[in-house]
Design a binder for these strands. Structure first.
Lengths: 110, 110
DNA sequence: CCTGCAAGCCTAGACAGTCTTGGTAAAGGA
DNA sequence: TCCTTTACCAAGACTGTCTAGGCTTGCAGG
């Protein structure tokens, strides 16, 4: 389980969270779990990164939060994508694909 | 020329610089210019990011520096990749492709 | 010759996002 | 009753980028 490098690319967490909420509302830890699972354990979201990100997104109006009860019968805060959040997600994906294209050009060495 | 988002992905600059030095030594501004050109103007490296990054890389032993004279007949500091730098570049590319694979998995939404 | 501009290097401080480390509360099983 | 797990939360350190400045020097224009 050696980890020499970060589990995340700085600046992508917001996008990943929005994406994880695309189909259905989830609570905090479930979002982190989902990102980890879908990425086949490549990505890992620390709680200390997760919650600040959620507040950020909520403050921007991209997600809304409501208390509910988790599958394990614990109280949990469920986050839901707003329509502004969907727009934001689209914009971030666009930006991501643009920048990675630039990086790949350099790495392919023209 | 609207720029709402960063010109760089946080944490990739070191890799890009190493890559730009892969074939031949270059001086600072030439490195930034090359990254910008090869990426077709998608990426842009600010000087305030560039020089700190160069010192970092030099301190790690991944590049070495020597004063020389540029094409424009100005004194300039030429940076050269060391063999440790080549290893580092390979490692960073490996890490980059791994993480982007993870992100792409999430974005493709499994 | 003098002036101005561009090339090239450099630094300090602000800032943003992540990570580390700590904590709380409550459900459920032993 | 106690322990573990789930779930949320906060403070501070840290790292890397950006903003905004500044310095020197070669060369072109007048």
């Amino acid at each position: 389980m050696a980890k020499e490098k970060p589990d995340l690319v700085y600046g992508t967490l917001d996008m990943l969270i929005l994406k994880a909420l695309q189909h259905e509302p989830r609570h905090g830890l479930a979002i982190a779990d989902r990102i980890q699972q879908i990425s086949k354990d490549i990505l890992h979201v620390e709680q200390g990164s997760l919650y600040p990100a959620l507040y950020r997104l909520e403050a921007q109006g991209w997600i809304t939060a409501a208390w509910g009860v988790s599958d394990n019968n614990r109280k949990a805060r469920y986050y839901k994508l707003t329509s502004a959040g969907r727009k934001q997600l689209a914009a971030e994906q666009e930006h991501w694909s643009r920048i990675t294209k630039g990086i790949d050009l350099v790495l392919a060495e023209g």
